[in-house]
Design a protein around this nucleic acid. Structure first.
Lengths: 353, 353
DNA sequence: GATTAAGATTGAATCGGTTCAATGAAGTTT
DNA sequence: AAACTTCATTGAACCGATTCAATCTTAATC
């Protein structure tokens, strides 16, 4: 603001000490004689100098004390999406403990994102790879800073990543429903080509789903196969993880002659949206339809009825991710953590008919 | 990682040009002859140099392209508290449009917060002053960067702030209930001394509430006075804006002989928690008790029933706050924006008795 | 009083770039 | 051929600090 900004050198000169000493007064006070320290501090205050400017310190020390969390989505994603939020809460808690700051870096279009990643002032990146993970990894790699990918799903083994066992998780939750006696299932998937409408065949799904979603589909199918239900008997719809696409899918699904009694949603968000749609349609959960989600976000617990879901160990994920960046404690590549089934009120045996 | 990090100077030497030219190749490509540019870029690629390091650029140029959002709360606050989240969503949207990054700076204890504020790499600060606002402002001031306070409430006119008209908002919502025919009110306030238990007298409230809460109380009282209801007839309880304190207050409130038929909550969060408590207690909303909130967070719309509340113009607040920092467009000090009443399902005429 | 050790201070190098006045080279005008 | 432009490039200063080997003080020990 004031154009004649005073810097450390000015203070040093005014106090009649070397710049080195002046620097020590602020950064390593114990090394300078008390009398001198007082004098320098006095002059500094007089001149309106409030301690070393970070920009200078930074250049020398190199360590920024902040980690960047990146995603290919509008910045608002971090505050809107339940999973992202739950994860961020845990990340924030871990960062708090270590005195590390968090910088949000994001953008919808790739060019801007590239710029943002390149100019983010951070010591490393945590990548939320729900969308366009590979691109995100590629952009980050250029920066030559430590990074770790979350929710990346299978693929390239050269990418340091922390993930969860999507197949086992999906299988667990599908088995839960099958054991309750359900026979008619439907899957609400995440992220099929947005222009596609209507149910997709298993072949289409395997081909076009990104790996996280594909693994979850495989898990569902695997568990249901044990109960004699083939994958072609389970209609599957793509959604964009938003209300519009979920509503559209359900609309079509429940227009059929024999609608499902159990819905396998690939995210809690989808599941919660589905429950809202069902409620609006006068269908009782779990009376008419059982619903399960995936992720274990807090909203799943407070919804009415509570949502049965598979919980990710977000706290553990956060802890490891931050450690990976800060302590350069890169995990064994492609680590997959276990998930746990949480049974709540949204699932029950099917109505006898 | 690779210890022998190559820098611009290395590239310049290897390419046989001056460092100045090398710099231009990256920062102002149009000024250097194409042939030279190509050669330098080639060498750079060969050496594994990915463009200028921000830290160096930063020192010279000074502009960071990120704004800090600060609060005296754990970092997780930004992702958990509904109001903070709604605000962050809007801030994020505005920042997205201008290509500005967001750095979260926070801490529970003041010492750490001071450090974090001092070392945050940002061009300016937006202060969430719900808690300990004065302290936050004081710490930020030292940094000598542009800043603007949100939710600060009255007080010091020398602090640039954007606020809302708490008195008018509170009056509006209280009048809405009174016009429906309610006579027995109760107020759930934010942020009385945590050690206090039980209802507080108006005098106590005026003395110990922070200014935002006090203004809302004044608004309630003012509107109710027009309907012949004195402030001493409206029991008021302090809460910490969390479930524990809200439950405790309601527990006591509904143990009385003539419990209220209308609850004035000073935040949507409190209101939503109250509705959950009432539901658990078997009291119907709005059948047995009407509830209103304050803030206008998204959750208020999706709750069942929808929460009647007073909405803050968060988008406008966000827009102005970001403009204030980025364009140094400091607003007229202590600006107060209007709020709007949103009537939903949580309010109805009282049951006749 | 001479010798050491410990502590405080200095000065210059360094971090990794950007910027700008000055220089050089090539082309144009009179 | 001299004078004037234009455009590309150079070299050095600068941004605001930290760091460390070397020097200077002071106090303690023999």
């Amino acid at each position: 603001m004031t154009k004649g900004h005073i810097k450390l050198a000015d203070v040093a000169k005014a106090a009649g000490v070397s710049q080195g000493t002046a620097s020590n007064v602020f950064s390593r006070p114990e090394v300078v004689r008390e009398e001198v320290r007082e004098r320098v501090l006095g002059i500094a205050r007089e001149l309106g100098y409030n301690g070393p400017d970070i920009k200078g310190r930074l250049l020398r020390a190199g360590r920024i004390n902040a980690i960047g969390v990146a995603a290919i989505d509008p910045l608002a994603y971090f505050f809107e999406d339940p999973w992202a939020r739950a994860l961020m809460t845990e990340l924030a808690t871990v960062c708090d403990a270590t005195g590390t700051g968090i910088a949000l870096v994001s953008a919808q279009n790739q060019q801007k994102l590239a710029w943002n990643i390149n100019s983010a002032l951070v010591d490393g990146f945590i990548l939320l790879c729900v969308e366009g993970g590979e691109k995100l990894v590629e952009l980050t790699r250029r920066r030559q800073l430590p990074f770790i990918a979350l929710a990346l799903g299978g693929g390239d083994a050269s990418i340091p990543a922390i993930g969860i066992d999507n197949i086992a998780g999906a299988a667990t939750v599908a088995r839960h429903l099958a054991e309750l006696g359900h026979h008619r299932f439907a899957i609400l998937a995440i992220g099929l080509n947005s222009d596609h409408v209507g149910a997709v065949t298993p072949e289409q799904a395997v081909r076009s789903l990104k790996s996280t979603s594909r693994d979850r589909a495989l898990g569902y199918w695997q568990a249901l196969a044990d109960f004699g239900i083939g994958r072609e008997d389970v209609p599957m719809y793509g959604t964009q993880n938003d209300r519009l696409s979920v509503d559209a899918a359900l609309e079509e699904l429940f227009a059929t002659a024999k609608p499902p009694t159990a819905i396998l949603a690939m995210s809690d968000r989808i599941a919660l949206l589905a429950m809202q749609w069902l409620a609006g349609r006068g269908l009782a959960v779990p009376g008419d339809v059982s619903v399960v989600g995936f992720d274990g976000v807090p909203e799943a617990a407070t919804a009415g009825p509570g949502l049965t879901t598979v919980a990710q160990p977000l706290q553990e994920i956060a802890r490891r991710a931050v450690a990976a960046i800060l302590e350069d404690a890169m995990p064994p590549l492609q680590e997959a953590l276990d998930v746990t089934l949480i049974v709540r009120g949204s699932t029950a045996p099917p109505r006898l008919d």
